[in-house]
């Protein structure tokens, strides 16, 4: 899918994109700012899936960690009264990181459809727990108040999406994307190509394929959890159906495949396209939204296996 040469550190691009988003804030209509922020949140989940895809792995249960992040933030808010977005984010990442570390010992030996199915089963277990536990809000879930940052609370007249929350999401997404970019360009990231291309050879190069998969799994989980925290803070609500159910995981897979695995920007671009199209589709052709997704996915599989990003590569010329 992606040749070795495709990784190029894109620090400048990430800084530029983040600065542009922050600078555009005063000009953006509310819906556009909201869409941009939601796309960053979902894009983080897809970015985690992109790491796994580079390892040749697809998880049909990434909603598990998305839900863990969202619920960690919601529970910390509900029961501990924490409103600080930084603390909530760290809580979500820590919870997902620990659980992924433990589950990683099981999944790291699995590949192909077994990896996909095992993660699906994990996420459905969590769905079963969340939907049936009254203390966790059952199928109704939780509401979350408007978050603060380091003591800065929004005024009473401010809506849900304040500049503080927007800025926080933009800057942390950029920082995380930059880190992932570096990791993908380092031996850890390339080990993924080894796992995908020929695991046996990788082992004989003294690299533990299982260890590398475990590491990637934890990274992907943390990214999904951070995306979950952001989404919950933006939407103000979390339910099992919208986080842990398999259809949500399927959506993330769709976005990751649509974007392609060529660059850390790809999942964010794909998620933005996804959000925009959904907004319009639900308004004008609500009964054809999933059909649109399905047809797009088929077209990408058949004609654009490198995803949207391969179009960018094509524009730049194949070899750079």
């Amino acid at each position: 899918m992606t040749a070795l040469r495709n990784i190029r550190p894109t620090t400048a691009g990430i800084v530029l994109a983040a600065a542009a988003l922050l600078g555009l804030w005063p000009l953006l209509p509310a819906w556009a700012a909201h869409t941009a922020a939601v796309s960053l949140g979902g894009g983080l989940v897809a970015l985690g899936l992109m790491i796994l895809i580079r390892f040749g792995l697809v998880s049909f249960g990434q909603g598990l960690f998305f839900a863990i992040g969202g619920y960690a933030a919601a529970l910390a808010n509900q029961f501990l009264g924490i409103t600080d977005m930084l603390v909530l984010s760290v809580a979500g990442i820590a919870a997902a990181g620990m659980i992924a570390w433990a589950l990683g010992y099981i999944v790291r030996g699995h590949r192909g459809i077994f990896f996909a199915m095992l993660n699906l089963a994990f996420s459905m277990i969590l769905f079963g727990i969340l939907a049936k536990t009254v203390a966790l809000g059952s199928t109704d879930g939780f509401s979350v108040g408007v978050p603060t940052l380091l003591g800065v609370a929004p005024g009473p007249e401010a809506g849900r999406l304040t500049f503080v929350l927007f800025g926080f999401i933009v800057i942390s997404s950029a920082l995380v994307a930059w880190m992932v970019d570096r990791i993908l360009a380092s031996p850890v990231g390339y080990a993924g190509q080894g796992v995908r291309e020929n695991e046996l050879r990788l082992r004989y190069l003294g690299v533990s394929a299982r260890g590398a998969v475990h590491l990637a799994y934890i990274m992907a989980a943390k990214l999904a959890a951070l995306g979950g925290v952001f989404t919950v803070l933006l939407i103000g609500h979390v339910t099992p159906e919208d986080t842990a159910y398999w259809t949500k995981s399927g959506e993330f897979v769709f976005v990751a495949i649509l974007g392609g695995a060529g660059n850390v920007a790809a999942p964010f671009i794909a998620q933005t396209v996804f959000e925009l199209v959904r907004t319009f589709a639900l308004q004008y052709v609500p009964e054809a939204w999933q059909m649109l997704l399905g047809i797009t996915l088929l077209l990408v599989i058949l004609f654009l296996p490198g995803g949207l990003w391969s179009l960018v590569d094509r524009l730049r010329g194949r070899d750079a």
């Binding site: 192909g112 459809i113 047809i295 599989i301």
Partner: peptide
């Protein structure tokens, strides 16, 4: 059109069909 591709790609193709049929 997808025989011979990675088994996970085939899963994705049938998932796409599933999405289409849901709306059909």
């Amino acid at each position: 059109w997808v025989y011979g591709r990675d088994e996970i790609v085939i899963v994705l193709a049938t998932y796409a069909v599933f999405l289409v049929l849901e709306d059909v």
